[in-house]
């Protein structure tokens, strides 16, 4: 087997692509594809967020805000400003990137829990704007989104969206892995270990934090836009702090600092409620218990901890 295939970057990407094909082939009906698409959309956000949390060591409890802005860009821009639906996600992504860039410096000066609070507040402000400006956004009940047309054909089928989501996820993973492997990425990793140490070593800490923040915000916006176009409907819930927290849980559950772990986290947390519906009223208790148990016993996240265990078994 050629060496490049065994690298985590290419090998992991190929494995991910293979899983995507398998899931598509094995899905008994469109419902399974629907869940898979939702997993993919969340995974796109998580891949970016993991770079911010896992590598740059900066927590954000506000990324659902960026997701929501992206979603509403796809809904509001075509409906009120005549922007074509295909261009809206791009406009949304650039605006969110600009916004993230503007707030990044002051916000990222904060540390730990203070940073968590500031990003949480930012997300809530976005949520309130989307809820209260109902002339534009349709208010708390949300608004319909114009379907995407490519060459005049309406893109609304699950097959199409599975393909688009899978492609975008692969692309964002590839981009992220390259970022991680670049000098910037190495600096980011140093950052997580110790900011001061990184600074002393001559790394422009602030600049790299800003890059990770803006990049993850733009990925969140992209996923939000896609989610809106896919479902044909947006509500402010998706920008709410519960969704922000879900996204962080996905990162931590799957494995901070492990890009593929984060995707696994997104898959587990997105599909878990669908499995738990059989427990009816016990659903939440079980979800909470699973979350606690996983974090206690696989504290570095599902993927890294499991890999550790396997490696230990092999050597011991």
């Amino acid at each position: 087997m050629p060496a490049w295939l065994m690298q985590p970057r290419t090998g992991g990407l190929l494995l991910l692509a293979a899983i995507m094909v398998l899931v598509y082939l094995a899905a008994p009906n469109n419902f399974y594809l629907d869940v898979a698409i939702q997993i993919g959309l969340n995974a796109i956000v998580v891949v970016g967020l993991n770079l911010l949390i896992g590598y740059a060591g900066q927590i954000s409890l506000g990324h659902a805000g960026f997701f929501g802005l992206g979603a509403y860009a796809s809904a509001v821009l075509p409906a009120h400003f005549g922007v074509p639906p295909l261009a809206a996600p791009v406009v949304g992504m650039l605006s969110v990137g600009l916004l993230a860039f503007l707030v990044a410096r002051p916000i990222l000066r904060l540390k730990g829990h203070y940073l968590a609070m500031a990003t949480l507040g930012l997300g809530i402000l976005v949520f309130m704007l989307l809820t209260n400006e109902s002339q534009l956004t349709g208010g708390p009940d949300g608004m319909a989104v114009e379907r995407l047309r490519i060459f005049g054909e309406r893109i609304s089928g699950k097959d199409w969206w599975y393909l688009i989501t899978a492609a975008m996820l692969l692309l964002s993973v590839w981009l992220t892995l390259n970022l991680i492997d670049s000098p910037t990425g190495r600096a980011l990793r140093a950052l997580h270990d110790s900011q001061i140490a990184a600074q002393v070593a001559g790394v422009d800490v602030a600049r790299f934090k800003v890059i990770a923040f803006v990049y993850s915000a733009m990925l969140a916006s992209l996923a939000g836009s896609m989610s809106a176009l896919y479902s044909g409907f947006v509500t402010p819930d998706k920008a709410g702090f519960i969704h922000s927290i879900e996204l962080v849980i996905m990162v931590v559950l799957g494995g901070m600092g492990s890009t593929f772990g984060g995707i696994l986290g997104a898959a587990v947390l997105t599909s878990l409620p669908q499995f738990l519906t059989v427990f009816a009223e016990y659903e939440h208790m079980i979800l909470g218990a699973i979350l606690m148990a996983v974090m206690i016993f696989l504290r570095r996240g599902i993927l890294p901890s499991t890999l550790d265990l396997l490696a230990r078994r092999r050597t011991g």
């Binding site: 009906n29 399974y32 629907d34 869940v35 939702q38 479902s231 509500t235 819930d237 998706k238 669908q274």
Partner: peptide, 16 residues
């Protein structure tokens, strides 16, 4: 009460 969850569950009712 979550619109997005409702949408997924409705898909499940219809498709699955």
């Amino acid at each position: 009460g979550d619109a997005n969850k409702a949408r997924t569950l409705a898909t499940r009712l219809i498709e699955d």
